[in-house]
Structures are given as structure tokens and as C-alpha cells.
């Protein structure tokens, strides 16, 4: 898996990762290619993988019956798609659709969770990188919720 390991360490999410830890993660990783319109995952499906986008754009969307889907976030090159794999019951909370041709690395969630249980240092390094992303997404979502451009 040498090629994958190299690609992983180049990804901004893994900046500062030790070679040993990179190897561990690469051992759970595989390459993906999604054409425009293809879904990375669907709401309610098992969250058994998370994705590091190498190129392209992914839209997170939610559908209400009788309404067209609403896209509430897009993620692009260098960004991570998927956090529900960290939290039981490990189910996706929205659909993720490739807006354009998208290349990504998928990391097997169960594989990585087990390795983190065994190696807590790996676990802590993963958490340190994930949490800021989640906090930023939470802040962004709150700003969206405020509908600041709407009329008073």
C-alpha cells in the first residue's frame, strides 16, 4: 500500500503524522473515484468509511418528502467527509453526492477504530485532527442557521 500511504501523508489532514501512524491508517485505506452525480453514502446507511477528498466536490444534502433536496454544505479538495463513523450507532445522517468528478481516499471505519483502541496515541492524534473540523463545522452551521442574509 505504499502509494496510498504516500498520498495520505500528503493530505493536509495528516500533516505531522508519524510514519508509523501513517502506515497504520494506510492499512485501512483504499482509493475511490466518484463520477458526478454518484453518491458516496446515503442517509441511514452504515457509516463504515470516511473520506479524504483529493480532488472534486461533494455536496451534503437532506431530503424532506415532497421537497427537492437541500444542499447544506459542500466539501472540496483537502477536506474530510464523514464524522458519524466516530459515534455509535455509526449511521450516516445525510446523503453525500459527488457534484463533479471526485477522487477520494476511503478509510475503513471499523479497521481504524480497532487500531485506535489498540494504540491510544494513534487514537489521540486522530481525535486532535477531527475535533477542530467538527467545531468549525458546528460554528458554520450555527451561522447558517441564523440566516443572516434573510430579511428581518
Amino acid at each position: 500500500m505504499e502509494g496510498l500511504e504516500h498520498i495520505l501523508t500528503e493530505h493536509p489532514f495528516f500533516a505531522g503524522f508519524s510514519a508509523e501512524h501513517s502506515q497504520l491508517v494506510a492499512g485501512c485505506a483504499r482509493n475511490h473515484r466518484f463520477n458526478a452525480g454518484e453518491y458516496l453514502f446515503r442517509e441511514g446507511g452504515p457509516a463504515n468509511e470516511f473520506f479524504l477528498i483529493r480532488h472534486g466536490r461533494v455536496a451534503l444534502e437532506i431530503v424532506s418528502p415532497g421537497q427537492t433536496p437541500i444542499v447544506f454544505e459542500t466539501l472540496g479538495e483537502g477536506q474530510i467527509v464523514g464524522a458519524s463513523w466516530l459515534v455509535p450507532p455509526y449511521r450516516w445522517m445525510s446523503d453525500a453526492r459527488a457534484v463533479a468528478l471526485t477522487r477520494a481516499i476511503g478509510v475503513d471505519a471499523a479497521c481504524l477504530r480497532n487500531k485506535c483502541e489498540t494504540d491510544h496515541h494513534l487514537g489521540y492524534e486522530m481525535m486532535k485532527r477531527f475535533l477542530p473540523i467538527l467545531v468549525q463545522r458546528l460554528d458554520a452551521t450555527r451561522l447558517q442557521l441564523l440566516d443572516v442574509y434573510g430579511k428581518r
Partner: peptide, 10 residues
């Protein structure tokens, strides 16, 4: 909606 191919977010 899905017609928009640009960024969605803040």
C-alpha cells in the same frame, strides 16, 4: 438545491 454546482457553506 441540486442545480447549484458551486460551494454551499459559510
Amino acid at each position: 438545491d441540486a442545480d447549484w454546482h458551486g460551494n454551499v457553506g459559510v
